[in-house]
Nucleic acid binder design. Sequence first.
DNA 1: TGGCTTTTATGATCATGATCATAGAAGAGA
DNA 2: TCTCTTCTATGATCATGATCATAAAAGCCA
Lengths: 240, 240
Amino acid sequence: MDSAGGQTLENLVDEQTSRVIDIYTRSPVFKGLPESELQRIASKTQWNEYAKGRDIFQAGSPCTSFLVVLEGLVKTSVSSIYGTKITYLLARQGEPLNLIGPFTGKPRLLEAVAIKTSCIGSIPREEFLSFAWENPELITNIISILGFAIDSANNRIIDLVEKKVDQRLYKVLYTLYSKFGPRLYLTSQELADLGGTTVESTLRSMKKFRMLGLIKTRRGEIEILKPEELKKSGRDVLWV
Amino acid sequence: MDSAGGQTLENLVDEQTSRVIDIYTRSPVFKGLPESELQRIASKTQWNEYAKGRDIFQAGSPCTSFLVVLEGLVKTSVSSIYGTKITYLLARQGEPLNLIGPFTGKPRLLEAVAIKTSCIGSIPREEFLSFAWENPELITNIISILGFAIDSANNRIIDLVEKKVDQRLYKVLYTLYSKFGPRLYLTSQELADLGGTTVESTLRSMKKFRMLGLIKTRRGEIEILKPEELKKSGRDVLWV
DNA sequence: TGGCTTTTATGATCATGATCATAGAAGAGA
DNA sequence: TCTCTTCTATGATCATGATCATAAAAGCCA
């Protein structure tokens, strides 16, 4: 971490690889794998930096490598031809962006955008696959994450059919709180995309929440004051 | 198939196994596996019959075996505590009921009900897992089906946010038509559960469709007359 | 054949939230 | 410092579809 001058290229590479190993150790995808295997796959990981707002991949593009967030924050979303956009995962350090793609190679609906300047690790599809076949634990992790994603999507569907905007936003806010803590750096538009509603409705709901003393808002920032109150409205949490 | 008398037990078992092999050959899960492997896993498959309306598994029950539809029709759905129910797959011959469970063992949100009298194949979890690890092709199939399920759920979410009831039902009907042909044996309630709406709204929409000459209805039956018209309203199809 | 249940049908009402419109506040950049 | 853009704010309107209520038709079973 102390980058005092005079380092050789090898030292730099080693340092980077060891950071990747560290990230993978805590990643839901690589969780439980032996250190030696983590080292092996970390050494095949390429870093790429994406400026805030840049596309990482677009809907319909074929998959050539496994992608994982190393630093920053990435939004994966699905949009319709009419422009409606649903954000379905805010991926941070250690979270994968495309679990299906490496296996099928086929394009999918998702698109990913860096919402902070981010570093993305990429492992060529073939490398990733042969690594996966040698590590059943990894496969189990992947299938389990996919199960979580499906459950979460089904929860969203139920909520859309049955719950009102306020309650959906309660749930989104509580989920974000669980993952990122009490300070959320999101605009109302981004929140609306997570809750499946419009900016206007979101702003109106936020006003209510503010008056109830549940949150405090500033431009581009929401502070959760009473998470327990938000929690009340629904035990099952989304995957966000 | 000709069960003229005098068969030994072995013959019966063989006959049943060969039917299972036949089903597996056309199943999306086992697609592409060598005959010998199909035979091996088919021989470990137990048949269970479920009368119409009977639960196959409930939400929250732990998973002890891999389940696949051998005969009949099974509805998998997610319900909320308030009773809202979303049907998300009508599984017929060859389709799996629980892809995640065998890997994680954990309970999930889904529940499955036989909507016709059905035969379900079950493979003990451990057997299925060890078989899966020996057949990467199977894993790829599973992950690819899960990807399809996620895409389909995301499509539903977008449709719920953006489309009106009529359009959602168009899509549901067209999807069912693609899978089951022009005659659908479903009640309006079942259709409502697929489209994420109420019986009343479904009935009103059906009236419109009838007057447009798109469908004909009888009690418990819908006949699709003009599939092309239904298709117009959205290119991406659900997984139903 | 006559009850009983399930499914279909339709009217009336009403709340929610999308949409349109406008405007002010807060940052970003020149 | 001033301009331009993004974000927040809020009012007004309006259509959709859920909900409630009632009833008739269709199928089932004794």
